[in-house]
Amino acid sequence: MSEIVTQEHLTAALKERLQAEHVEIIDNSGGCGSAYEVIIVSSLFEGKSLLERHRLVNEKLKDEIAKIHAFSQKSYTPTQWSSMNQTQK
């Protein structure tokens, strides 16, 4: 694995390892290393507390997170995600 974690790599990893049906990555790199804000929608989050969801993401992206300067995540189930998007419309 290369030392730089690209958005493409992160997106692919999330889709594969977390069976994410939707991934959004915002690059907040402000000159002091890569910083990513990630929205993950996956049915694997169903029935899990916020801490458990974040721990799952941390575990699946262990190698990547260790290389990223700052990593921020928002995790939603498909149901939560679709109801959020309906509210916005």
């Binding site: 916020l50 801490l51 721990r55 941390n58 262990k62 997170i65 260790a66 990593f71 921020s72 928002k74």
Partner: peptide, 23 residues
Amino acid sequence: SWPTIPQVYIKGEFIGGTDILLN
């Protein structure tokens, strides 16, 4: 078992980092 800083503990229990606190 948490890869980032900050980390918050309340009464001996790990709560999480900034994302979780904000949420």
